[in-house]
Design a protein around this nucleic acid. Structure first.
Length: 637
RNA sequence: GCCGACGUAGCUCAACAGGAAGAGCAGCUGAUUCGUAAUCAGCAGGUCAGGGGUUCAAAUCCCCUCGUCGGCUCCA
């Protein structure tokens, strides 16, 4: 039998019938305690019996053990809730990415005071260090037990999931239907925090009961827990809605409507910089820039099929002169009609048409969220019409293009997913295979790592999604590259082949930033509102020390403005410290302080955001440095 | 859309348990002309989200609507 303890490997004969727990006690040399064991690759309870010739690994930490710990924490939560409010019905309580939750059903809502009470009770239960035992019950016994307790959700789960005997876990008076595994006793769950409560449908079904879901998190050590709580605070500080208000970037107004964004001047200029960069790069990559209207004849949406499969996301049509017009939820049908307006030869392909197209989608009120989920937004859309042979190269260059653009905004880590054919799909399987193959080959050639998400493609074609990671390690869906078999057929578009035959082109939809609104929101959070120089709404703040220096300040302001530098001068009758503080709070990258000394020598005193006072330098030197840095679009100041 | 919480000055937030709406910042006016994260004084600013109800009396209690937040579901 092979046993692994941390990095150490031991070969040892061991008798059957003992538990891993006992085995550990015989082997252990120090006070460290494993949470669970991995037996032939499967995570098991320490209380399970050793069967003989397994390869055993004792787990002390790591992702798998953390999941076990959090799962046990969720049981602790349920036990605490049942002790505090007997009769509460319990649902499911799994570990999740950053912690765990447990679903409960009862009339009264849990208040934040209740959450505190629960946490205290959990602490007490942890201190009691109750044994956590797995028991195997006959199905009938389990159902009887939970019926007596009035736990109808548990019964539903047992009837669905259990085949023969039922695995339950018991700690003190609390028994839960659960597959496990768990830590050996409640004392293992020490460092945890109850975070929030919200609603969740039973089994995610809108038609079923609404449960109250209590979220929490748990870690191996106090340090790790504190680190995570600190991360939550940091994320809160970076909230784009908060920063958007503080930095006057954008506004959502009740008077305008929910999910509709007003771009204030400070945000507007950032958007302009992003869009200019975007357009210029597209032209450089062989795209053409096009524009299309915001509404179109309803018939267009009939042809495109959106009325069939997208209706619930569309605002209702408006009628005038016996024509119904539809506010557009997508740009693609316009581009298709434009393709159709001219006869295309295979020699024309690939055609790459890009548009910053503003679309409107009806989103259910509960899902709106700052800039990240809105009802009117501008997609950085493009459609590539190409031959099947060109598909792979086009996808590869799009991938590289995406990488280039995203890294300019400081995003260099991605999670990439290739989504393949779902159960419901249009087009021939042969086409799907070809497209999936092209996407896969392009990904392989790009050298980027990716995961395959089987069956997650859209009904009209397979796709690649790129999720970016921000400085806090959070992921955001932005870029998407989708092959479409549906629209070209529905609109009957074609190009003329070498031999004169008509051929349906491959259509690739792609967005790199996703939407300008969402991307801006992500950018704000990524940078914490402190934009790099090239994106900053105000790049240089000029602060004259006294009124005597106002003319000099205005002269330099003009020089900077003529060099296309975004500059503001603070002529207010305030002290230097006050103005510096304000520039700092506004996260302005460079501050030029101008007093009598500077004015006399044609110099400036420079402050750099995050670095402080850099001393004096000639204005001309500063200007050259500034222009160079803006041109380079660097992340550092 | 669903469940819960919340909505007070431009912003951030007070107002014990129903009894005359308050502070800081921002704004305006004046004084101060200042060397690296807040100078002082004065003034102005509110249909307490909107509507209805209970009460002698409502920011406060009840109902409805709208919006925001946390999630569910959905998603660029």
């Amino acid at each position: 039998m092979k046993i692994k303890i941390g990095e150490k490997k031991i070969e040892k004969e061991f008798k059957e019938g003992k538990s891993f727990w006992e085995l550990w006690k015989e082997l252990k040399k120090d006070a460290s305690l494993p949470l669970c064991v991995k037996v032939n690759g499967v995570i098991r309870d320490l209380r399970d019996e050793v069967e003989g010739k397994e390869s055993i690994e004792f787990l002390f930490d790591g992702e798998e053990a953390l999941e076990v710990l959090r799962h046990s924490a969720s049981h602790l939560l349920a036990q605490a809730v049942l002790q505090l409010w007997p009769g509460t019905k319990t649902g499911v309580g799994p570990p999740i990415k950053d912690g765990f939750y447990y679903d409960f059903h009862r009339k009264e809502p849990f208040t934040s005071q209740d959450l505190e009470k629960i946490e205290k009770r959990m602490l007490k239960l942890s201190e009691q260090n109750m044994e956590i035992r797995r028991e195997i019950w006959p199905k009938g016994k389990a159902i009887d037990y939970f019926r007596k307790k009035g736990q109808n959700f548990k019964i539903e789960l047992i009837e669905e999931k259990a085949e023969g005997d039922v695995s339950v876990y018991a700690q003190g008076e609390f028994v839960d239907f659960c597959r496990g595994p768990h830590v050996p006793s409640t004392g293992y769950v020490k460092y945890f925090k109850i975070l929030s409560v919200s609603a969740a449908y039973w089994k995610g079904d809108e038609n079923r009961e609404s449960m109250q879901r209590i979220y929490g998190t748990a870690f191996f050590t106090k340090e790790a827990l504190d680190k995570y709580l600190h991360f939550l605070e940091e994320a809160k500080k970076r909230d784009h809605r908060k920063l958007g208000k503080a930095l006057n970037l954008f506004l959502v107004s009740e008077e305008i409507g929910p999910g509709l964004i007003l771009w204030l001047p400070k945000g507007g200029i950032v958007r302009k910089i992003i869009e200019d960069y975007w357009r210029n790069e597209h032209i450089r990559k062989g795209y053409d820039i096009i524009f299309t209207p915001h509404i179109a004849d309803l018939n267009l949406w009939q042809t495109s099929g959106h009325l069939d499969f997208y209706k619930e996301n569309m605002f209702p049509p408006m009628e005038k002169d016996n024509v119904s017009y539809q506010l557009k939820p997508m740009n693609c049908p316009f581009h298709i009609v434009m393709f159709k307006s001219k006869l295309h030869s295979y020699r024309d392909l690939p055609i790459r048409w890009a548009e910053l197209g503003t679309v409107y989608r009806y989103e259910r009120s509960g899902v709106l969220h700052g800039l990240l989920r809105v009802r009117g937004f501008t997609q950085d859309d493009a459609h590539i019409f190409c031959t099947p042979e060109q598909m792979e190269d086009e996808i590869l260059s799009t991938l590289n293009f995406a990488r280039e653009i995203l890294s300019t905004f400081g995003f260099t880590e991605y999670d990439i997913f290739l989504s393949t054919r779902p159960e419901k799909f249009v087009g021939a399987i042969k086409e799907w295979d070809r497209a999936e193959d092209a996407l896969k080959k392009a990904l392989d050639r790009s050298g980027m790592e990716y995961e395959i998400d089987p069956g997650a493609g859209v009904f009209y074609g397979p796709k690649i999604d790129i999720k970016i990671r921000d400085v806090l390690g959070r992921t955001w869906q932005c870029s998407t590259i989708q092959v479409d078999f549906n629209l070209p057929q529905r609109f009957g578009i074609y190009y003329v082949e070498e031999d004169g035959k008509h051929q349906t082109p491959i259509m690739i939809h792609r967005a790199l930033l996703g939407s300008i609104e969402r991307f801006f929101g992500v950018l704000i959070e990524h940078y914490g509102g402190a934009f790099p120089l090239w994106l900053s709404p105000v790049q240089v703040e000029i602060i004259p020390i006294t009124e005597r220096n106002h003319d000099y300040a205005l002269k330099l302001e003009n020089s900077l403005r003529q060099a296309y530098v975004r500059v503001e001068t603070d002529l207010r009758n305030e002290k230097l410290g006050y103005k510096i503080r304000e520039a700092h709070l506004n996260k302005i990258p460079y501050v030029m302080v101008l007093g009598d000394k500077e004015e006399k020598e044609g110099e400036i005193s420079l402050r750099i955001r995050g670095k402080g006072d850099m001393g004096r330098m000639r204005f001309s030197k500063f200007l050259n440095m500034l222009k160079e840095k803006i041109k380079n679009k660097g992340q550092e100041l």
